[in-house]
């Protein structure tokens, strides 16, 4: 027993003592989104030791930063509305465009955005959309409406998976009803509540991590899903079609932000600059199958990714960003969500 204890504690101290290097970069990133090869390439090019931790939702990023992790990471990758929230919370550092030599590579449409006017703390990373996919072996009718999810035809009832996040699910429901996001209007909120309450009986499950697998396995015939995730499901053999509903769909953009109290600010900026190189941005796109917010990536993209139907919405469709609601309205949406899952 004693000997075992000794060995274990020795091994333990050997582990804690390891990994001491001069140049470091600490990334807080979404789950499985960036290829390890790209991180290795950066580490090699700049002689920096890169470590990456992952989170599974914008909200859990916020929660752990708030609980005390601010100060241990250099960069994070929040979605659009979360950039604004983090900024309001005072969790972001700012930089000058002159500090990034590739700043001019940012696509014009993403150079000045509502959630970070003038791109003072963030650079665009990847963007995509949230909508739903339908298994074409099960249903061959038209899928151009969110009614497929919220008022499904007979053959799809009980075969629907929806994302387990209130923001995306309730925003799509609002689009279906044609009511504005973050509305404080009682009648509209009651209608929203009634819609999801009524639709729930037709839903088989709530799940975000499983959104792809249920479509591939055929457990669900309709799945609310992110565009790149749907492309992956398709490449794994699911006969599905990603819908761009006429009522609208969600567009989101993930952004690399410079965190406040970053222990390695210099390396963070080097990394952000590195990600603005078209070749590197394209590497992420090829991996995650979303769309880069950087000019000149086209020559580096794999054709299957560049031409994927999920990333090329038909002209004239409207995608909207999820809005960050003010507190007094957000509690109402939280109440609707809790009510839905009680």
């Amino acid at each position: 027993m004693k000997k075992l204890l000794m060995t274990a504690s020795l091994a333990f101290f050997a582990l804690t003592g390891a990994a001491q290097a001069e140049g470091k970069l600490s990334i807080y990133h979404w789950f499985e989104y960036i290829p390890q090869e790209l991180l290795d390439k950066f580490a090699k090019e700049y002689d920096v030791e890169v470590t990456m931790d992952t989170y599974d939702s914008n909200e859990s990023l916020l929660a752990s930063l708030k609980a005390g992790k601010l100060g241990s990471y250099d960069v994070a990758v929040p979605g659009d509305y979360m950039v604004k929230i983090l900024n309001n919370e005072g969790m972001l550092d700012t930089f000058e465009p002159s500090e990034l030599s590739n700043f001019g590579n940012i696509e014009d449409q993403w150079a000045d955005v509502s959630f970070d006017p003038g791109r003072k703390s963030s650079i665009p990373y990847q963007w995509g959309s949230t909508s739903f996919s339908v298994n074409r072996d099960v249903f061959s009718g038209p899928i151009d409406s969110l009614a497929i999810v919220f008022d499904p035809p007979e053959e799809l009832k009980g075969k629907i998976n929806v994302l387990d996040t209130s923001g995306e699910t309730l925003t799509l429901a609002s689009l279906y009803l044609g009511i504005p996001q973050c509305t404080p209007d009682k009648a509209q909120l009651k209608a929203l509540n009634a819609l999801v309450q009524g639709a729930k009986q037709h839903w088989a499950s709530f799940g975000s991590d499983i959104a792809k697998d249920v479509l591939v396995s055929g457990d669900a015939a309709v799945g609310m899903i992110w565009s790149g995730f749907s492309a992956k499901a398709r490449s794994e053999g699911a006969n599905i079609e990603y819908a761009f509903p006429k009522e609208g769909y969600i567009v989101w953009m993930d952004n690399v932000v410079l965190l406040k109290d970053a222990p390695n600010r210099e390396n963070a900026l080097k990394f952000m600059n590195f990600l603005l190189e078209p070749e590197n941005a394209a590497a992420v796109t090829n991996y995650a199958q979303y769309t880069a917010g950087v000019k000149g990536v086209a020559p580096f993209l794999e054709p299957a990714v560049a031409n994927s139907p999920e990333s090329n919405p038909p002209a004239g469709q409207k995608g909207v960003f999820v809005e960050a609601c003010p507190q007094e309205v957000q509690v109402l949406y939280d109440a609707i969500w809790t009510n839905l899952k009680k």
């Binding site: 979404w30 931790d53 992952t54 599974d56 241990s72 991590d209």
Partner: peptide
Amino acid sequence: KGAGVETLPTAIFGSVKQGI
């Protein structure tokens, strides 16, 4: 856990977002 320290469960959870 500290930044960059992984245990098997955290490494596994970090890899399953796009399906296991």
